[in-house]
Amino acid sequence: MWYEEAETFVDLHVNARPASGRNEIVGIFDDTLKIKVKAPAVEGAANKELVKFLSKTLKIPKSEILFVSGETSKRKRIRLPKNEKVMRLIGEMEA
């Protein structure tokens, strides 16, 4: 499963693809949410871009987006507060 839902938060299993042409959520592949980010994987730039993109897309403060694991890997587990936008994203990806 590409996400884990708790009472107050959701953990997303993300496959981040740095150095892409643009920031975008691609879809579900191999039980992960594939997200492309423009920034290269150098000195944390891709992670910063990923947090910025998720913050803007899901209307979540950057300070509330946490890396649970995989901060230096392409496969990451990211914790987000459970809100309407996050649940809508999950619903859209499941459809």
Rank of each mutant, 00 (worst) to 15 (best):
E5N: 05
K59Y: 06
M1D: 10
E84G: 01
W2V: 00
N23E: 12
E71C: 07
A41I: 05
S20C: 08
L80N: 00
T57I: 08
K36I: 03
A19L: 07
E7F: 01
R79S: 08
H13S: 06
A45D: 06
K38F: 07
K74I: 03
L58H: 11
F67M: 02
E49N: 14
K52L: 09
F9L: 01
E5Y: 04
D31F: 01
T57N: 08
W2Y: 14
I60L: 05
V14C: 03
M93G: 00
K38L: 02
I25N: 03
S73E: 15
I28V: 15
T8M: 07
P40T: 04
K59D: 14
R88D: 15
P40Y: 10
P18D: 03
I78L: 01
L33W: 09
I28E: 06
V37H: 03
N15A: 05
E24Y: 08
L54G: 01
V37L: 03
L89D: 06
F29W: 12
D31H: 13
F9T: 12
R75Y: 13
D30H: 13
A41Q: 11
S69D: 14
I28R: 07
S73W: 12
V37I: 06
A6G: 11
I35E: 01
A45Y: 09
I60D: 11
A45M: 14
I60K: 13
N23R: 10
E49M: 02
E71L: 12
Y3F: 15
K56E: 15
A39Y: 09
R77C: 04
N47V: 02
G21K: 13
V51C: 00
I90N: 08
L50P: 07
T57E: 15
M93H: 03
G27P: 05
N47I: 04
K52F: 09
A41M: 06
K82L: 01
P61A: 04
E7S: 11
P18F: 02
K62Q: 13
G70L: 06
D31T: 12
L80E: 02
K59F: 06
H13M: 06
V37R: 05
S63W: 03
E43C: 10
A95C: 10
F67R: 04
S69F: 05
V86W: 08
G91E: 15
E7A: 10
F67A: 02
E92W: 09
R77W: 06
E24W: 01
E94K: 14
E71D: 00
K74F: 09
K52Q: 12
R88K: 15
L33E: 09
E24G: 04
V10F: 04
V14N: 02
A6F: 14
A39Q: 11
N15W: 15
V86R: 10
W2K: 02
F9K: 09
T32R: 15
E94F: 07
R22D: 07
L12F: 15
K74H: 12
M87Q: 12
K62T: 04
V86S: 07
G44M: 11
S73G: 01
D31S: 14
I28L: 11
K38Q: 12
D30P: 09
I35W: 10
E49T: 06
K76P: 01
V26P: 05
H13E: 07
A6P: 00
K34F: 02
I28K: 04
E92Y: 11
I65E: 10
N15M: 11
A6S: 14
G44Q: 11
A6L: 09
G91Y: 06
S55M: 00
E43T: 07
Y3Q: 00
I35R: 05
I60W: 10
V51S: 01
K76A: 03
A6M: 11
